[in-house]
């Protein structure tokens, strides 16, 4: 038992590179698998709306905009980024990207058309 047992580790870290980074000046690497904003492939969508049914927070809306043409609208504030819609989609029309910098001051910008 002695006080200040951590001393040598502390002194050594003085000469180590700090582990914290200058975010947002330095961007973080989230990795490819990270679940962020969704990506929508319009040509693949068949409008089955299974994603809407499975979404735990009602964040995604599929709308018919023309003959066999559908648009996807996502509420970034509601989306919990679980990726269930990606799993549910039978045609793989949805994909999760690793874009996580989605914070907005303006609420109206949270509803985006994918």
């Amino acid at each position: 038992m002695q006080p200040g047992k951590i001393l040598n580790v502390v002194l050594r870290s003085l000469f180590k590179k700090p582990v914290t980074s200058r975010y947002p000046a330095e961007k973080l690497d989230m990795g490819d698998k990270y679940r962020g904003k969704l990506k929508f492939y319009q040509e693949l969508c068949i409008g089955c709306k299974l994603c809407m049914r499975d979404c735990p927070s009602n964040a995604i809306t599929i709308k018919k905009i023309g003959e066999k043409q559908f648009s996807a609208e996502l509420d970034l504030g509601k989306c919990i980024y679980c990726g269930q819609c990606v799993d549910t989609c039978p045609k793989k029309a949805l994909e999760a990207t690793n874009n996580v910098e989605l914070a907005q001051l303006d609420y109206s910008k949270e509803r985006v058309v994918l």
Binding site: G31, K33, Y34, R35, Y81, C82, G83, A96
Partner: peptide, 11 residues
């Protein structure tokens, strides 16, 4: 995050 795609809620 690498295994599951989330840091807190792994899904």
């Amino acid at each position: 995050a690498d295994l599951t795609g989330g840091r807190v809620n792994y899904g």
